[in-house]
């Protein structure tokens, strides 16, 4: 036998095909249908915001790793791109460029890298960036370009209110829901995405397609999306059943705002969600509850971002109490 040195390591000596970058690129692929719809609805504005957000997120991660942490940059893993794309999806298409960069900085530098980078952040970075922008620049963050009409405008497009803000304003002025509905886009428009809103949140259909892809690739499991959407439907349904003239119906609640974007792409972020099926369902249902509470009783028309961030904080607690069922703890049984 040759005297060549053999490699000795502990088992297992083989590994699966999964990798962190495969997961991240799968998420990017899954976001593509929604991106295409946003291009159709908001045109150049959506493209501009998306490119700036992705580029600045990747750049901030690179600069911080290279010059501050002095480690090998890991921008190829795709996670910064996912953060950039999700941040872009969560802002209006006419947001000034420098605000996008500020949001990217908050997302990457503060929400992600300061905790130790990918895997260590307790809160979803894109949502932290979004909420920072939302509370800092409320006017810019809530002026929604009218879909399709404004496709070829980069900034200063004609703006309109989102369905949720129409409802919020209307209910505040004691207008009944049956009357409000006449001012709202049809459910079909909501489903296909013909409404004002953040870049990526408008088309339920496109987001669901991405979700099916992620389920097929086993990047996410059904628990969080189903629990969260079900939670929104359940709690808004209870209120609606109680007084349909004062509260919007559950179908409206799940089709508007960021429910689908949040349920499929934001709440399912592995790093900031629970690990067991039981934990995921609790997490999802509570996000649904908080979303409804903020929408109905809170000051803001939309509550998905806040709801997810609030529940992110409970993830360690949920993980502590929702353990997988361990082998060997059942009573001895004979079949």
């Amino acid at each position: 036998m040759s005297n060549k040195k053999l490699i000795v390591s502990l088992s297992p000596h083989t590994c699966g095909k999964d990798s962190v970058s495969r997961i991240m690129y799968d998420v990017l692929i899954a976001l593509m249908p929604a991106f295409i719809v946003s291009m159709y609805m908001f045109g150049f504005g959506a493209l501009r915001v998306t490119l700036i957000a992705i580029f600045s997120c990747v750049l901030f991660e690179y600069l911080i790793q290279k010059f501050m942490l002095k480690v090998k940059p890991t921008i190829n893993d795709g996670s910064a791109m996912v953060t950039g794309l999700l941040l872009a999806f969560n802002v209006p298409s006419n947001l000034p460029w420098w605000m996008i960069i500020v949001g990217s900085f908050v997302a990457i530098a503060i929400a992600k890298m300061s905790f130790g980078g990918l895997g260590n952040n307790p809160f979803n970075p894109a949502l932290v960036g979004r909420v920072f922008l939302f509370v800092s620049f409320p006017v810019a963050m809530t002026s929604w370009p009218v879909p399709i009409l404004t496709r070829f405008k980069l900034v200063d497009a004609v703006t309109s209110a989102t369905p949720l803000s129409i409802v919020k304003e209307g209910l505040k002025n004691n207008i009944a829901t049956s009357e409000l509905i006449t001012k709202l886009p049809s459910y079909a428009d909501l489903f296909f995405g013909k409404l004002g809103g953040c870049i990526g949140e408008v088309s339920v259909l496109a987001l669901a397609l991405g979700g099916i892809y992620l389920l097929y690739r086993k990047v996410i499991s059904w628990h969080i999306p189903v629990a969260m959407i079900g939670g929104v439907a359940l709690f808004s349904g209870i209120l609606w059943g109680f007084n349909p003239e004062k509260y919007m119906d559950p179908m409206f609640q799940i089709l508007t705002g960021g429910v689908f974007l949040g349920a499929i792409f934001m709440a399912t972020d592995m790093v900031t969600s629970p690990m067991t099926p039981k934990g995921m369902i609790i997490f999802g249902v509570l996000i649904g509850l908080i979303t409804v509470v903020i929408r109905v009783f809170g000051a803001y028309p939309e509550g998905v971002s806040f709801a997810i961030l609030i529940m992110n904080a409970f993830v360690p607690l949920i993980d502590k109490f929702c353990k997988p069922r361990k082998y060997g703890f059942v009573k001895v049984k004979n079949d």
């Binding site: 390591s9 590994c15 962190v20 990918l118 895997g119 592995m270 790093v271 690990m275």
Partner: peptide
């Protein structure tokens, strides 16, 4: 025979 580079746990 070579193992891949060890990355952070992404809590998948």
């Amino acid at each position: 025979s070579m193992r891949g580079e060890v990355l952070n746990c992404i809590r998948c």
